[in-house]
């Protein structure tokens, strides 16, 4: 029998440990390879359905044609994408300022919260498509109208999550702040805002997607085209002309934009939380 001395000690790997390592290794590559594989198979199936059945491109274009259109119409699509992106990001920025600002105001004064929270809920539960036509009647500037629509959709998750977060500060810590004579501002700055950060970031991720949806839906309602139209109008216009490949290409760009926004906000969330918050910490076993 060999003795288990330091340095030459053989690794003790039991059945459980072996299966755990296998699972870890699988998760490492599976996380990336599997989705890519599935989407690749989906595109292949799409291609086969179109070519084998001889479906005409004005009914369902194949993936190759959609890709070709994306390249051919790139200049036009890029302009539209930039407009949509601009409205989405501006709406998101205003949603963050407005949502966090209102949430802070609400937690500072119960009076303000009781008075105004119902209106925030009303704005949220009323479908944007039903408010948008009115907005475009009262607001001359189309850009401003789109921005207002996207903002209405996006701000509520920021507001409600941040309010929840600001109120979820540990009660013993609140007591401690009181004992040490903290001012209202100090309590907000050093206790409530850090407590609210994970909640806010959760709301922000939802708001990112909603801002995009809001800007697209609003553009559908606004309808008028011309210079400065976004991807939604590109889709509308292409559908009038039965340019189905271009509709798909624009749709692809909207979806890709949504994914990029979500990924970007997730990364931001990870960067801000990974040192301390449970949600971003890897468990050892």
């Amino acid at each position: 029998m060999t003795s288990l001395t330091e340095g030459s000690a053989p690794e003790l790997v039991d059945v459980e440990e072996r299966s755990r390592r296998r699972r870890l290794a699988f998760e490492k590559w599976g996380k990336w390879v599997l989705p890519v594989l599935v989407i690749g198979l989906g595109i292949l199936a799409w291609h086969l359905v179109v070519t084998l059945n001889g479906i005409p491109h004005y009914i369902l274009p194949g993936p190759v044609l959609v890709f070709e259109t994306l390249v051919k119409d790139w200049a036009l699509l890029l302009d539209a994408l930039l407009i949509t992106l601009q409205i989405t990001l501006m709406a998101l920025a205003i949603a963050v300022i407005g949502g966090v600002g209102l949430a802070v105001l609400f937690t500072q004064s119960r009076l303000v919260e009781m008075s105004f929270y119902p209106y925030a809920v009303i704005l949220q539960v009323t479908p944007i498509v039903s408010i948008a036509p009115l907005i475009f009647i009262y607001v001359d500037n189309k850009m401003a109208g789109l921005l207002i629509c996207a903002w209405i959709v996006a701000f509520f998750p920021v507001l409600s999550n941040t309010t929840l977060g600001l109120n979820s500060a540990d009660h013993n810590l609140r007591d401690l702040f009181r004992i040490y004579g903290a001012t209202r501002w100090q309590r907000l700055r050093y206790l409530q805002l850090p407590s609210a950060l994970p909640y806010f970031l959760g709301g922000l991720r939802i708001a990112g997607g909603l801002a995009l949806i809001g800007s697209v839906v609003a553009e559908y309602v606004a309808g008028t085209g011309g210079v400065g139209s976004g991807l939604a109008f590109t889709i509308l216009e292409a559908s009038y002309r039965l340019n189905i490949p271009r509709m798909f290409a624009a749709l692809l760009l909207i979806a890709a934009t949504g994914v990029v926004i979500y990924a970007g906000l997730s990364f931001l969330s990870y960067m801000l939380l990974h040192k301390w918050h449970e949600s971003a910490i890897r468990r050892e076993v």
Binding site: N172, Y180, Y190, L197
Partner: peptide, 23 residues
């Protein structure tokens, strides 16, 4: 308190700093 009641987002040093920071 019965719980340690530390701020999870702050380091040990920053947590101990709190009473003085508030002053």
């Amino acid at each position: 308190f019965q719980e340690p009641t530390l701020m999870p987002w702050a380091t040990v040093e920053q947590n101990v700093w709190l009473p003085m920071r508030l002053r």
